[in-house]
Amino acid sequence: MSAILPPSAMRRVTCAELRELAAAYRVPLMYAAARCARETKVYLHWTAGHYGQFFADYHVQIDADGGIYVIGAGVLDEVLAATYLRNSGSVSIALLAACGATTDDLGAEPPTAAQIESMAMAVTALADGLWLTIDRERVMTHGEAADNEDGVRAHAPYGPRTTCERWDLEYLGMAESPVFNPWAQDGSRGGDVLRGKAQYYREHGVL
């Protein structure tokens, strides 16, 4: 079971501060990823817990109001237990949401609109600081990573296209991503929506 952190262990940051943190850890993350024969990655999660409930497994956490938090000083190259066999050389972002979510119903605490936009902005900030292209090879949901959709065969698949053990953010419960469909090609999968929003923020210099 993941360790729950008190709010006092967290520090709220702006996107500009998150970009600066990412830049500060660009080189150590790059070397850690290279030792695993891959590029630096950003993995997107939900906690499957409650709004306002922070966990020790994720570098960046986003609450229901869209507030972005890091653990303590924001040490982004610390290896946390976020993404099975993929944690070295990666940064994890998680929405504090989705307690009781199923592939048919995201439950009483689904991702909020504010969380979704903040996650996209956080992706942009991290990608800018880490010098990453915003694409599926470098920015993935845990569900996509679980099924090795980037071609990195880090483990047997366990995502939404196979065992469905992990399917974080496969759908978002909004008009752009209304239902669980891991085979969709129309851009409605949660990862596609989040990367699209992040790319929009990058191209329009919103942050």
Rank of each mutant, 00 (worst) to 15 (best):
A114R: 05
Q199S: 14
R38I: 04
G74L: 04
G100K: 05
D104G: 12
H204L: 04
A156V: 13
I4C: 10
S8Y: 04
V91A: 15
M30S: 11
P28C: 12
S2N: 10
W167V: 13
A3M: 07
L172P: 13
R161E: 15
A56C: 06
D192Q: 13
E170V: 07
A32G: 02
G187N: 03
C36N: 12
L96P: 02
D192H: 12
Y201N: 02
A64I: 11
S88P: 09
R12Y: 06
D104R: 06
A175Y: 00
L21H: 08
G49M: 01
H204Y: 04
L172I: 12
Q199W: 05
L169M: 06
Y158V: 05
W167F: 15
S188G: 08
A73H: 05
I62E: 02
D147R: 01
P7Q: 05
D77H: 07
R136S: 15
G159D: 10
A22S: 06
R161H: 09
L207A: 14
Y31G: 03
P28N: 00
A24N: 09
V75S: 07
S92C: 04
A125G: 07
A156G: 14
Y84G: 02
V75I: 13
Q53L: 07
V27S: 09
A81D: 13
R138I: 09
E117T: 05
M140F: 02
R86N: 14
Y171N: 06
